[in-house]
């Protein structure tokens, strides 16, 4: 859900260079923990999880202009470290296909991998107290809200918050007055519409995660940690 699909050249190097550095530092930390006999089992599992994430994105949702990401579900299934690593593989393959820029792989991985890590830890904490289905839904909503807020923050910083807002004062009173007249229309068509689509996307993804977790809890409870 929080996947940006930002093209190359929109974000300045001030954003994407640190994004790459932090992403590679985390990847180094996570992959260093996969060693020896454990690696033989976990590497194919991570690869399959990345394949699943890519496939979830191609599932049609009807008329809504959003697609499933299910990074939180992958985090729940394979754990935070492998979930983050799978997110990197997904973003690199997507960038090679032209879906999202090559320079924003780091930031996209931090957001998508962040969903997997956050969602997994919140789910683990909640599932000790409540049911797995509700824990999955709540952890998904919280993780998606945090990463989507981060995404909006990055995008508005990249394009300049003043330009990103539906009304901005250019220092001329006349323009500001015209802006105020247009405000309700622009708010409804622009940012409100985007907010409604994002909210619908978060709800659908959380609901889907809950349903899948409920299904797996009945059929293969060993998969849900």
């Amino acid at each position: 859900m929080s996947h940006i699909h930002l093209p190359d050249g929109v974000l300045s190097p001030v954003f994407w260079v640190p994004g790459f550095i932090i992403c590679f530092a985390l990847l180094w930390f996570f992959t260093k923990r996969i060693k020896g006999e454990e690696a033989k089992k976990k590497i194919p599992l991570t690869g399959v999880a990345a394949g699943l994430m890519l496939i979830f994105m191609s599932v049609p949702l009807g008329f809504l202009p959003v697609h499933l990401g299910l990074a939180v579900l992958c985090g729940i299934l394979v754990g935070p470290a492998l979930g983050f690593t799978a997110a990197f593989a997904v973003n690199t393959i997507l960038a090679l296909l032209g879906h999202g820029g090559f320079t924003v792989i780091g930031i996209n991985t931090l957001l998508m991998g962040g969903e997997a890590v956050l969602g997994c830890y919140i789910f683990r904490a909640l599932s000790r107290r409540t049911g797995k289905t509700s824990s999955a839904v709540i952890s998904n909503i919280i993780a998606l809200l945090i990463t989507t807020a981060l995404m909006v923050l990055i995008v508005s910083s990249a394009v300049g918050a003043a330009h990103a807002l539906p009304i901005h004062d250019h220092g001329h009173e006349i323009e500001a007055a015209h802006g105020a007249e247009d405000f309700s229309f622009l708010t409804f068509t622009g940012w409100s519409a985007a907010a409604i689509i994002i909210a619908a996307g978060i709800l659908i993804e959380s609901f889907a995660t809950g349903l899948i977790v409920r299904f797996l809890s009945k059929i293969r409870p060993d998969l849900i940690h």
Binding site: I43, P44, T46, G47, V48, A50, G51, L52, L54, I55, T85, A86, A89, V90, T92, I93
Partner: peptide
């Protein structure tokens, strides 16, 4: 992981 992702995809 890339190779396994691609294969499983």
């Amino acid at each position: 992981i890339f190779l396994f992702s691609y294969r499983s995809l």
